Computed example of a mutant assay.
Amino acid sequence: MRQRTGTGGRVRRAATAAAALLAATSLAAGCGDDDAQDTPAASSPVPSASPSANPKSTLLAAVPDEEDPAFRFSGSDPTGVVTGVVDPAGKGMDLTLTEKDEKLGFTMKLSFRLIEQRSWMKVSFDGADELSSMLKLPKKWMELDHAKLTDPASVPYYEGADPGNAGAILRAAGDTVTDQGGGTYTGTVDLTHGEHVRQAVADALDVDALGPAAKQVPFTAVVGADGNLTSLTLEIPAAGKNKATKYVVRYFDFGKAPKITAPTGSQAQKAPASAYELLNG
């Protein structure tokens, strides 16, 4: 895994900037409710055979890398849910964050298509279709010029085949990994163990707020019969005013997901000024 802070984290920061602008404007006044939500896709891994001699190495080998075919992923944590497709061969990724504003009564879907250092964005509003025209946002893919962003790093680009940072997290498991059989592995991770793992969860968790508990966060990982990591779940303990929660990454449909291609022709255009206003807040 070579993510710095995680592609999902970048999408959430972009969504936060967009949501801040929407909340500050009167354009959303009177928008109706919409209870539609994207549900993260789940997979049904086939249990693997007998326990492995080196369970940690087995887990790390199962983490997606640049040699894998295109696959789907989903990730959820206290900040929301991200879903998408990763195409390692094409160095591309599609991902969508769905965020509902309970006060204003609409759901924003912020999608990105990434191919190497190029980024396209698409925004839609369920329950408030008029917002797209009122905000002067086209419904097609908008290619972004990172030089026009207040913080270019806040918008994602392709950084590798492990958007959920599973590799960085599992490397912080030390010698605690236990093979439970049937493709299931358990153990604990030390989220304070170096900047790599801290950055992996920085956008989702306040490691310092967890106190001593951050050094032994329980996890469960599942590897399918095809040798691919199917899921990684961290059981985040309660800390201060924060309730206990989970950090979940799922990888599935290896070889079945579509390849990522650049949107062309009538599918795309250069991002207008309104798109940068939305992202820059």
Rank of each mutant, 00 (worst) to 15 (best):
Ala49Lys: 10
Gly6Trp: 06
Phe106Arg: 04
Phe219Tyr: 09
Gly255Arg: 05
Thr176Ala: 04
Thr79Leu: 12
Gly84Cys: 04
Ser44Met: 10
Glu66Ala: 15
Pro152Tyr: 08
Asp179Gln: 01
Thr96Asp: 03
Thr178His: 10
Leu22His: 03
Ala128Lys: 06
Gly75Trp: 02
Gly265Val: 05
Val81Tyr: 00
Ile236Asn: 01
Thr176His: 01
Lys103Asp: 12
Thr188Trp: 00
Thr107His: 01
Pro212Cys: 10
Thr261Gln: 07
Asp68His: 06
Asp151Ile: 15
Thr245Gly: 05
Ile169Glu: 00
Lys56Gly: 13
Pro152Leu: 09
His196Asn: 15
Lys270Tyr: 11
Ala202Val: 10
Thr79Lys: 14
Asp206Arg: 14
Gly75Leu: 13
Pro88Cys: 05
Gly90Leu: 02
Ala89His: 10
Ser43Asp: 15
Lys91Gln: 11
Val11Ala: 12
Thr245Ala: 09
Ala202Pro: 01
Trp141Glu: 02
Ala41Phe: 03
Ala172Glu: 06
Lys140Met: 15
Asp175Gln: 14
Ser43Ala: 14
Ala166Tyr: 01
Gln37Leu: 15
Gly32Thr: 15
Ala61Tyr: 05
Thr192Ser: 10
Ala173Asp: 05
Val201Gln: 07
Val123Leu: 11
Leu131Ser: 03
Thr230His: 13
Asp226Ala: 11
Lys270Trp: 12
Thr184Asn: 08
Gly181Glu: 07
Val123Arg: 04
Lys103Leu: 15
Thr58Ala: 14
Ser274Asp: 05
